[in-house]
Design a protein around this nucleic acid. Sequence first.
DNA 1: CTCTGACCTGAAGTTGACTTCAGGTCAAGG
DNA 2: CCTTGACCTGAAGTCAACTTCAGGTCAGAG
Lengths: 146, 146
Amino acid sequence: MHLLTIGELSARSGVAQSALRYYERLGLIRSTRTGGNQRRYERAELRRVAFIRVAAQVGVPLEEIGAALASLPDARTPTKADWARLSRQWRGRLDEQIHLLERLRDRLSGCIGCGCLSMASCSMFNPADRLATTGSGPRRLLTDDQ
Amino acid sequence: MHLLTIGELSARSGVAQSALRYYERLGLIRSTRTGGNQRRYERAELRRVAFIRVAAQVGVPLEEIGAALASLPDARTPTKADWARLSRQWRGRLDEQIHLLERLRDRLSGCIGCGCLSMASCSMFNPADRLATTGSGPRRLLTDDQ
DNA sequence: CTCTGACCTGAAGTTGACTTCAGGTCAAGG
DNA sequence: CCTTGACCTGAAGTCAACTTCAGGTCAGAG
């Protein structure tokens, strides 16, 4: 079973080589090197990359994804059980996310239904609760904590 | 009924003054000026700001939000019907978004359930469909078009 | 053995959505 | 009238998540 080159990993995962190198710098994936300093990936890395993409697509910042991946065993190749544990956590996350969107949708429907659209009565237009976070840089979407 | 200052609009909407000025530069909101060059906002702008925040929170880029808002009547103050039309469109968007996440969640559950987690059989780990977009800059989350 | 396409690196650029800053102007209470 | 807090502007900084570039090295097909 041969190790994957970066080109192969990229092709199979659908993630650009530059992004893979970037993930590696952030410590999200690992590679060994050939004598000539080229990266070689174990098949298991493909799973990590897939996990990263799924999580990122859901809006989890890479740093957090890294933290989650860090909980995988370092020495041995992660087992099915290891992945299942991680996936379970992410399922919770997805559920939360979905719930948030549903609430938003239902509020919006309520507004259309009642035709209120007035600042005073409509919760959609009283966003003081979870908007208005402070700090610099771009806002994270759909913040649910902090 | 007095016009709002930027400070008031900021306080009521929960959006920073700097962000409001930014939105104005992008043409998402409008203001008149006093003799002394200070911004004054009509109450209706509060509604626009709220709409912007809701849409942005769902992941719609400001540019698209601007396009949507541009469909509002320019001359007169938007009516309930105008807003309802816009909201209905956004509801579709939310539905799509929710559907996408649900599909993701169900896939993930499937993986845990069957314990497959293998590249060959598991759709979660065959992301070639909607990942791997090209171009520069950060990826938009939860892409559903293009 | 040669050549061409895959790889390498570090630095710098890009995009979206803002914030921060410096250096000034305005307005309203005392 | 004066002072202080709210506003103004343009330019530059920030942050995440990458990409692009320049200038090299490597590997395997022929």
